[in-house]
Write a protein that binds this DNA or RNA. Structure first.
Length: 279
DNA sequence: ACGCCCACCTGGAGGC
DNA sequence: TGCCTCCAGGTGGGCG
């Protein structure tokens, strides 16, 4: 499910119900996520107050008042949803609600993840950046300092396709299959193009397209294909604006083009693009 | 070091 | 209805 816009949407949805509030109880209903839940997880979280929630790449960083950070990744199918005490009573826990945070004011945050590709771990806040999962991550695409020349620099010498390079979180973070396809379409760049040839004006176009597609999707609450919901239960709507993703056979949306959107498989993932508009 | 393939796991969709 | 195959917003380990 979640690429940067979906994770950012979840972060924003959780903020008003979590920040400055205490987690009074934590239920672990299944520990075997992609990485097993931490030892003594409940006792290390219970009684802690949330100071803030940050995002790095596709990770949520929930800052606790004892200097720990709760790191959450949603994998492919993870959700974080809010339930107030009354609705919680009416809506019993579901099969894939693996972790439940009970907040002091009676609200709950439920972590639901059918495929269990997600993870949660605890780290000292000052060590998160050095953690194995974080130390090789590339720059944030929405950082204003990350511009065309910076992207071009990170693509230098890369012999793989530009599509694969965008999915590689060492190049830059937060891009997944949807936004890689959509940004390449907006930039008019073929997903098959060799990554190192995306330089100069092409790199300028690509970073602009990436920023635009991510910001627009955040505005729409992300893309809901199957699993993604905002914490309050609202769906995302950016999928209604897809130009190419999952649209194989549809007419290319470029005015006057008329070609059909094609699907191909690159490094095991579907790519959608227009062979006429994207070079 | 780099790039590619696969596995991890569940569920939904479509074909027969 | 049921069973089978394919596919899915991610990632990291192992291989050549």
């Amino acid at each position: 499910m979640p690429e940067l816009p979906e994770v950012e949407t979840v972060r924003r949805g959780l903020l008003p119900r979590l920040v400055d509030r205490k987690i009074v109880r934590l239920q672990q209903r299944r520990r075997d996520l992609r990485v097993p839940l931490p030892q003594r997880f409940a006792s290390r979280v219970e009684g802690r107050t949330v100071l803030g929630i940050d995002r790095r790449a596709k990770y949520l960083l929930i800052r606790l008042d004892d200097g720990q950070t709760l790191i959450v990744h949603l994998g492919m199918s993870g959700r974080m949803t809010l339930h107030d005490a009354r609705s919680a009573a009416q809506h019993p826990l579901e099969r894939h609600d693996h972790v439940v945070f009970e907040i002091e004011d009676g609200w709950q945050v439920r972590f639901n993840d059918a495929r269990r590709f997600g993870l949660m771990l605890l780290a000292r806040s000052e060590t998160v950046a050095d953690h194995k999962l974080f130390k090789d991550l590339g720059p944030e695409p929405l950082d204003p300092a990350f511009d065309g020349p910076a992207l071009a620099g990170r693509l230098e010498g890369r012999r793989t396709s530009i599509k694969a390079a965008l999915l590689d979180q060492r190049t830059l973070v937060g891009i997944g299959n949807i936004y890689a396809c959509e940004a390449l379409f907006l930039a008019g760049i073929s997903p098959r193009r060799s990554a190192h040839t995306v330089q100069g004006e092409r790199a300028d176009r690509l970073i602009a397209a990436l920023k635009q597609v991510l910001l627009r999707s955040i505005d729409d609450g992300g893309s809901t294909l199957r699993d993604h919901v905002q914490p309050g239960g609202e769906l995302g709507y950016f999928q209604t604006r897809f130009n190419v993703y999952d649209r194989a056979g549809a007419v290319c949306p470029t005015r006057g083009c008329g070609h059909a959107v094609k699907r191909l498989v690159q490094s095991g993932r579907s790519t959608f693009y227009c062979t006429r508009c994207q070079r």
